[in-house]
Design a protein around this nucleic acid. Structure first.
Lengths: 142, 142
DNA sequence: TATTGTTATACTCTATAACTATA
DNA sequence: TATAGTTATAGAGTATAACAATA
C-alpha cells in the first residue's frame, strides 16, 4: 500500500487553482492565435456544446447579459455564430455555432499542447478515474 | 470490476472546460463580492503563493507585462500589495502580498461553496487520487 | 544589445441603468 | 408586471508600440 499523502481540501483548492490557471492560460493563448479574445473563445466553446439562448449564455459565462450582445456581435460579424429568433418565444434569441465556428474551436483545442500532453501521460484507467472525479466535483450541483 | 467508460482525451478536455467554467464563474463572483475584478483576484491569488516579479506574474497570468502595471497599481492603492525593488537587479520589481491582501484571498476562497462542497463529496482516498492526477497532468511540464 | 517596467493608444470586456418588444 | 435582448456609459482589462533605467 502507498502512504496516504493526506491531502486536505485547502491543498486541493490550491492545486485546482494552479491546474485551471495553466489550462486557462493556454486556452487564452490558443484563442489569441485564432484572433479571438478569451471571452470570445469561451463563448464559442459553450456554443460548441449546442444552441443556447443569449440569457443562458450570460449565466454560463457568469457575466451580465448586456456583455453577451457585444461578444456575439463580433463573432457573428466574422461568421462564427448565427442568431435565430425562437419560434416559441419571440423575445428569445437562440445562438447557433456555424461550421466555420466549429473549425475554430477545434483548432483552439488542438493547440493546447501542454494540457493534451499532460492527459496523454495518463493511462486509460487513470483517464476514466479523473473523468469520474471531475464529474463528481463539478457535475450538476444540487 | 466496473465497466471501463473508455474516456478519450477529447472528452476529458471538454470536462476540463466545464470544470473551469464552474470554477472560474464562482471565483469571479466571489472576487466581485470583495470588490475585486477577476484579474485582480487572480493576481492576488498568485501572489498568495509567494513574492513574484512583475514579469513573472505577467507570464503566469498569460497576459502582456504592460497590463500588470495597472492591475498592481489598483491593488497597491488599496493596500493589498506592496512593490519592492529587487536588491540583486534594480530593473526588477518584486510584488509582495500584504496581510490585508491575504485576508481577502482567504475570504474569496471561503466563498467558493460549489467547488468546496464538490471536493467535500470526495473521501480521503479520492482526494489523494485527484491530487496526484492533477499533478501528473499539470505539474511542471518539461 | 537585451531586459524590466512604465506610458500612450485603441479596442474589448464588464456592470449598471434605461429602453423596446414580447409574454 | 415580468422577462429577453439592446443601447449608452464609465471603469477596467488587453495587446501593441515606444520609452527610460538597468544589466
Amino acid at each position: 500500500m502507498a502512504e496516504a499523502p493526506q491531502v486536505d481540501n485547502a491543498q486541493l483548492m490550491e492545486l485546482l487553482s494552479v491546474a485551471l490557471g495553466v489550462y486557462y492560460g493556454e486556452f487564452t493563448l490558443a484563442a489569441a492565435s485564432e484572433n479571438l479574445t478569451a471571452s470570445q473563445g469561451k463563448a464559442l466553446t459553450v456554443l460548441r456544446r449546442g444552441p443556447i439562448a443569449m440569457r443562458a449564455l450570460a449565466d454560463t459565462m457568469a457575466c451580465d447579459a448586456s456583455n453577451v450582445t457585444g461578444i456575439i456581435d463580433r463573432l457573428e460579424k466574422r461568421g462564427l455564430v448565427r442568431r435565430e429568433v425562437s419560434a416559441s418565444d419571440r423575445r428569445v434569441t437562440n445562438l447557433v455555432i456555424t461550421t466555420q465556428g466549429e473549425k475554430i474551436t477545434d483548432a483552439i483545442r488542438a493547440k493546447m499542447h501542454t494540457t493534451r500532453e499532460g492527459l496523454d501521460r495518463l493511462g486509460a484507467e487513470d483517464r476514466n478515474h479523473l473523468s469520474a472525479l471531475l464529474e463528481r466535483v463539478f457535475g450538476q450541483p444540487s
